[in-house]
Design a protein around this nucleic acid. Structure first.
Lengths: 175, 175
DNA sequence: CACAATTCAATTGTGCGCAATTGAAAATCG
DNA sequence: CGATTTTCAATTGCGCACAATTGAATTGTG
């Protein structure tokens, strides 16, 4: 009758969901001086590693689609930290470049990981604690991969015979 | 120069964020037959455990505020699975009751946890795997607690001397 | 080469999350 | 008791997430 498996406390998904939101809330005060939100911070992290990438590849890295990224990047552009530029070789693509302000922001962000690690209860000097942190990170990554792999396995068999209507060609506007 | 600490792959927050979203995506096809979203599912889980609770207590359980819950609960009410009723003893409170349709939905939900555990790569028969699952859940819960405890410690010192203007009293509408 | 299919970013629409405010009801305090 | 403060749900506004569609550019194929 009581169905233990349906208890909220038993759900790994809820623990994940809840911990993730708590983590994002913890970042907020640290990101406020930079004037960006948490998802925007993730985009900046990706761009600080590699610049001039397309919306597509950025989306693959962060598991976000253009529906999320396009407006987010437009806001970052309005803030003056990135530049969105239609590719010359392939007009479908839009390359995202950091501005100098965007590159400078990286210096202000340097202290964030350590500050957050402390907040999350990890002693930055403690080698063993850092090892556990890395372990948790890997566990989560592995979990995500397993879930996503299964999704593909389920989605793929349905891949099939769609027939799209042809479309006329008009020159794409500058943006 | 390369600042390893700012690498996206190094971020526990991103692993959490990404895994959590993957998990929610995995739930979606299982929830579609019930006609509810993932956050609505969490609310139903809470209500199946305890009925007739206030929006406030539901919010504490799920770490969500009225800004999120009120419209969500209105949608669940429109679906006919819950009833929202202004408390008689305390007119500020709104009690959330399951309808019979809401209680029946629990039967359809019974298979979900097992189905999801498999998808997440946990063999339901394997005691050791289940132990690891529980361990991960506890690690996440502990992490969340640590983060939230620190938030309170930071927020509290700022608690101080606000002076609100008085307000007139009008009878609250039925809903 | 024509034309069908695919790829890519943008757009549309819905549902969260959450900060901040509002309005009413209850609790507290002088 | 009357005024102040606190509590509670609702509302407002903004920024994600994400499914679905659109429009244009490219690729693939006969």
């Amino acid at each position: 009758m009581s169905d233990d498996a349906l208890r909220l406390d038993q759900q790994l998904c809820f623990a994940l969901y809840s911990a993730s939101r708590a983590m994002i809330r913890a970042y907020q005060p640290l990101l406020e001086p930079l004037g960006i939100t948490y998802p925007q911070y993730l985009v900046m992290l990706a761009l600080w590693e590699r610049d001039g990438v397309t919306v597509k590849s950025l989306g693959e890295r962060l598991a976000l689609d253009s529906g999320t990224l396009t407006p987010l990047l437009q806001r970052l552009e309005a803030q003056g930290v990135v530049r969105r530029q239609r590719s010359d070789e392939d007009e479908r693509k839009v390359e995202i470049h950091l501005t100098s302000a965007g590159r400078q922001m990286r210096n202000k962000a340097r202290s964030i990981p350590t500050a957050l690690a402390c907040r999350a209860g990890f002693d930055v000097e403690d080698k063993d604690a850092l090892r556990k942190l890395g372990q948790l990170r890997e566990t989560l990554r592995a979990l995500e991969q397993t879930i996503e792999r299964d999704r593909e396995a389920i989605a793929e068999p349905a891949a099939a015979t769609a027939t799209a209507a042809p479309r006329a060609a008009k020159k794409r506007a500058a943006r």
